[in-house]
Simulated scan of single mutants.
Amino acid sequence: MDIIFLHVVHVLAALGLIGLVLIQHGKGADAGASFGGGASQSFFGSAGAANFLTRSTAILAAVFMLTSLALAWQARQIANEDGDLLPALQKIQQEVPQVDTGVPVVEESAAEVPQVEVESPASDVPVVE
Rank of each mutant, 00 (worst) to 15 (best):
S34E: 15
A58R: 14
T54Q: 10
R55M: 10
L66R: 01
L15G: 04
A50H: 15
A61T: 11
A70W: 04
S46K: 15
A62Y: 01
V63E: 00
G38E: 14
F44Y: 10
L60M: 06
L53F: 13
G26N: 11
Q24G: 05
G19E: 01
D30R: 09
F64G: 02
A49M: 08
V21I: 15
A47C: 02
A75P: 01
G36Y: 06
S42Y: 03
H25V: 04
S34W: 10
A50E: 15
L17F: 04
A50M: 12
N51A: 13
M65S: 15
Q74D: 10
S34D: 12
I78Q: 11
Q41V: 13
L53M: 14
R55V: 14
D30K: 12
L66P: 00
G26I: 08
L15K: 05
A49Y: 04
F35H: 13
L69K: 08
Q41H: 09
A58Y: 05
L71T: 03
Q74P: 00
G45R: 09
Q24D: 07
G16I: 02
A39K: 13
T57Q: 02
L71W: 02
F43Q: 10
I23L: 12
D30F: 08
G38H: 14
A58K: 12
G38M: 09
N51C: 03
T67F: 04
T57N: 00
T67P: 01
A70E: 06
T54I: 06
A72H: 08
W73P: 02
Q41D: 13
A61N: 07
L69R: 08
A70T: 09
G37T: 09
V21G: 03
L69D: 06
S40I: 10
G37L: 14
A47R: 11
L53G: 06
A47H: 08
A50C: 05
A75W: 07
L71G: 05
I59A: 02
V63H: 00
W73C: 05
V21F: 05
A62T: 02
L60I: 00
F44E: 00
A33V: 06
A72I: 09
I23K: 05
F44M: 08
I59Y: 02
A31H: 07
F64D: 00
G32T: 13
K27I: 03
I23C: 04
I18Y: 04
D30H: 10
I18T: 10
A70V: 07
V21R: 05
I18Q: 02
L22V: 14
I59H: 02
Q77T: 07
G32M: 12
G26T: 15
S46F: 07
I23W: 11
L20H: 02
I23E: 08
A47V: 09
G48L: 09
Q24I: 08
V63W: 01
G16N: 06
G38V: 03
F52R: 01
F44P: 02
S46I: 12
G32Q: 10
I59R: 00
I18G: 09
H25Q: 15
F64V: 00
R55L: 13
N51G: 08
G28E: 14
I59S: 03
M65V: 15
A62I: 02
S56Q: 10
S46G: 07
T54N: 15
G16R: 00
I59C: 05
L17A: 04
Q77D: 11
M65E: 11
K27Q: 06
L71K: 03
I18N: 03
A29E: 11
T54Y: 08
Q41F: 09
G19D: 03
L66T: 07
A39Q: 12
G48R: 08
